[in-house]
């Protein structure tokens, strides 16, 4: 359903190329031999049940876990395609707080709970050199408005926020630096249904307007349908089916995908 308005057909250079990514936990497969390309502005949903390897994949992609094999090639600003697994720790950290972002399932993992909402949003701009307090605050309030948080809450700490507000704040905190690639780990996981719908619609609008590419891990197929251009179905560490979101959801071929689709209430 999503219009994918941000697809840039002229730029066929992938933003992210994953090749033969494998991560084992002893003899247990985390994920095995995964390859896919992500284009600028494209949204890929990785779906599968608990233990299917989708979180392992996300951790490997976002540099939090070192895979046993494979490469994760990202089209770095000023440098071009580079295997991020070969970057030094400081280089990877810099990437994570500028051109990349990670939205945690639990907003408490992604926010500084003792710092004000405005301070949470200002942190990334300050980390890359923003120093003018007035401008940082203005930018923070601009983002609070975009994620529909009352500006009166600018100086409140997120621990006084509801779960849905915390999640929206976390998203503002990431998007403020205009990243080109954002990883999301079950961003609607801990929220009740009415809050989920609002967050999803907000996410849909934000990513369309900014044109950011997203890898989103979810077990919720309606999240995938609403947000994703393409879906990767994971099962027991393997990629068992992939295609356009509407194709995978409306005409699933693999037994596991069929089970997943038919289990939606």
């Amino acid at each position: 359903m999503r219009a994918a308005a941000q697809f840039q057909p002229a730029r066929r250079q992938p933003l992210l190329s994953v090749r033969q990514l494998t991560k084992m936990y002893g003899k247990t497969v985390g994920c095995r031999d995964l390859s896919f390309d992500l284009f600028p502005g494209e949204i890929i949903a990785i779906v599968g049940e608990s233990g299917s390897g989708k979180s392992t994949l996300l951790s490997c992609l976002s540099g939090r876990l070192m895979p046993d094999q494979g490469s994760v090639i990202y089209d770095l600003n000023h440098k071009g395609p580079t295997d991020i697994l070969t970057l030094s720790e400081p280089e990877r950290r810099k990437l994570m707080r500028t051109d990349w972002g990670l939205v945690h399932q639990n907003p408490r993992d992604g926010l500084r709970m003792e710092v004000t909402a405005g301070g949470n949003i200002g942190e990334r701009p300050m980390a890359v050199g923003a120093r003018h307090y007035g401008r940082i605050r203005e930018e923070a309030q601009n983002w609070l408005a975009q994620v529909e948080i009352d500006l009166l809450r600018t100086d409140h700490r997120p621990k006084t926020f509801s779960g849905g507000m915390q999640q929206r704040l976390q998203i503002a905190r990431i998007l403020v630096t205009k990243p080109r690639l954002v990883f999301m780990d079950e961003p609607t996981g801990g929220l009740d249904v009415s809050v989920q719908a609002r967050l999803l619609d907000l996410l849909r609008c934000l990513v369309m307007n900014i044109g950011v590419a997203v890898v989103i891990v979810t077990h919720d197929l309606s999240v995938a349908r609403l947000l994703a251009d393409r879906i990767i179905v994971m099962w027991r560490g393997n990629m068992v089916e992939t295609g356009l979101a509407d194709q995978v959801l409306d005409d699933p071929h693999h037994p596991y995908t069929q089970l997943l689709v038919s289990s939606v209430l």
């Binding site: 359903m1 697809f7 057909p9 284009f39 719908a197 356009l244």
Partner: peptide, 23 residues
Amino acid sequence: PWEVVEIRRSAIGYVSQFLRVIP
């Protein structure tokens, strides 16, 4: 896949039986 999206967007309109509403 991205070509299919592009071809659909400019070349093919599809009116399904039911509107899929977005909240």
